[in-house]
């Protein structure tokens, strides 16, 4: 009964072994996976923007790293996961295009990754691995049975972190 849960853009979802969870075509968005090795349960967030407090239109909470993480953790706790046991892996945050006024450190991809790291730190969730930045899109699949995050990108060797 293997099945793969698909996470949409500006959304999150959770699943448990033997299910896997995936999101497709992460560009400058960031994918944040948190997982509990005991219960083999995990959540994945596909966030578009770093910080809901800097935006007027912030009702769509899963669009942002900060509010998206808050909601996803609540949902994991409702599923019986102890948030103190969570660990994290992140991917994405690419700089897809070279527009002139958009350098590496101001690119939205970079900001998304920084926000993800900051929020994880605040929550006390250790970041175990990451594959972020660069200039290409990524499709990611997480398996809560093995805690492996598979990353596929066009023109790159598939990798596992």
């Amino acid at each position: 009964m293997e099945s793969v849960v698909k996470v949409r853009m500006a959304d999150y979802s959770i699943c448990s072994e033997p299910q896997k969870i995936t999101t497709i075509g992460l560009g400058s968005c960031v994918g944040i996976v948190v997982y509990d090795t005991n219960s083999k349960t995990c959540g994945m967030l596909h966030a578009m923007l770093p910080d809901s407090t800097k935006i007027r239109n912030n009702s769509n909470r899963s669009k942002f790293v900060d509010t998206g993480m808050e909601d996803m953790l609540k949902k994991l706790e409702q599923a019986g996961v102890n948030r103190k046991r969570l660990m994290a892996k992140i991917a994405g945050g690419a700089k897809m295009f070279d527009f002139i006024d958009d350098n590496e450190n101001t690119s939205v991809g970079y900001q998304n990754v920084q926000a993800a790291k900051q929020v994880l730190k605040q929550l006390g969730i250790p970041l175990i691995a990451e594959d972020t930045g660069k200039n290409y899109g990524r499709t990611i699949v997480f398996d809560p049975a093995s805690n492996e995050l598979q990353i596929k990108a066009i023109g790159q060797e598939p990798m596992v972190i």
Partner: peptide
């Protein structure tokens, strides 16, 4: 860019999503 359509289209989507 030559890449997945989702990754390319996510850029204008993000700019609009603000």
């Amino acid at each position: 860019s030559i890449d997945m359509a989702g990754a390319i289209l996510s850029f204008p989507a993000i700019i609009n999503s603000r």
